[in-house]
């Protein structure tokens, strides 16, 4: 079943006075299905929100989390903004690039990893910080960055869980996270059931 037939589509449209506002959640839904934003995905979104494909494409390219090229099973994002930078984030990034065999900004030929450096992900108290499919790990040292890559390759988890990765590869946290969650990400899209549709029946 195509994502366009997902009942959440109608729920999302109902939440906004103007259907154009649904373009962001729909781009996530399309990405979740296709793995990245194919031309077909852009066209599907444009039909639902009443924009041209060019308009939707212009929005998709504005936001860094919408990917117009195929990404690996595990999108590894390493923060290099100031609090991480002064705590040696560059070394963590290099270790991860080296272990994954993929330079930042690229995807490996086998499609397992995409590595990128990202701007501040709001984990400055747990610097250096890394995300895998947007699930956060704080206080990642160089050696743990390498272990993370090896673990992802070997264990090949279908769902990546932030709490599990934090326990295995993380260190200093920005704050106590509280109880562990059972939810995590299955691809390079933020793991959120309703993608913002939770709400009443207006």
């Amino acid at each position: 079943m195509s994502w366009t037939a997902d009942p959440r589509v109608e729920q999302i449209l109902a939440r906004y006075p103007d259907k154009k506002s649904a373009v962001m959640p729909f781009l996530y839904m399309a990405m979740a299905e296709h793995g990245y934003l194919t031309d077909e995905a852009i066209r599907e979104v444009s039909e639902l929100v009443g924009m041209t494909s060019v308009q939707v494409s212009s929005i998709a390219t504005f936001y860094s989390m919408y990917k117009r090229e195929r990404v690996g099973s595990y999108l590894i994002s390493v923060c290099t903004s100031v609090s991480c930078a002064i705590l040696d984030a560059a070394d963590v990034l290099h270790a991860i690039e080296d272990e994954a065999g993929v330079p930042a900004g690229e995807t490996g030929d086998d499609g397992v990893f995409t590595v990128e450096h990202v701007e501040c992900i709001g984990a400055c108290g747990g610097a250096p910080a890394v995300q895998v499919n947007y699930e956060l790990i704080e206080g990642v040292k160089e050696d743990k960055g390498r272990e993370l890559v090896r673990w992802l390759r070997d264990a090949a988890p279908d769902t990546v869980l932030g709490d599990e990765m934090q326990a295995l590869f993380g260190g200093q946290r920005s704050f106590e996270w509280g109880p562990a969650e059972g939810e995590g990400a299955t691809g390079p899209v933020p793991a959120l059931d309703a993608l913002g549709t939770t709400g009443g029946s207006s």
Binding site: F62, Y66, A194, L195, G196, T197, T198
Partner: peptide, 22 residues
């Protein structure tokens, strides 16, 4: 949340909207 909060007739809907890296 929704209709008639605390029996006062006041309605409120809250929608969560996710950004995308900007």
């Amino acid at each position: 949340l929704g209709r008639n909060l605390f029996g006062t007739g006041f309605d409120l809907d809250i929608t969560l909207h996710l950004g995308a890296g900007a």
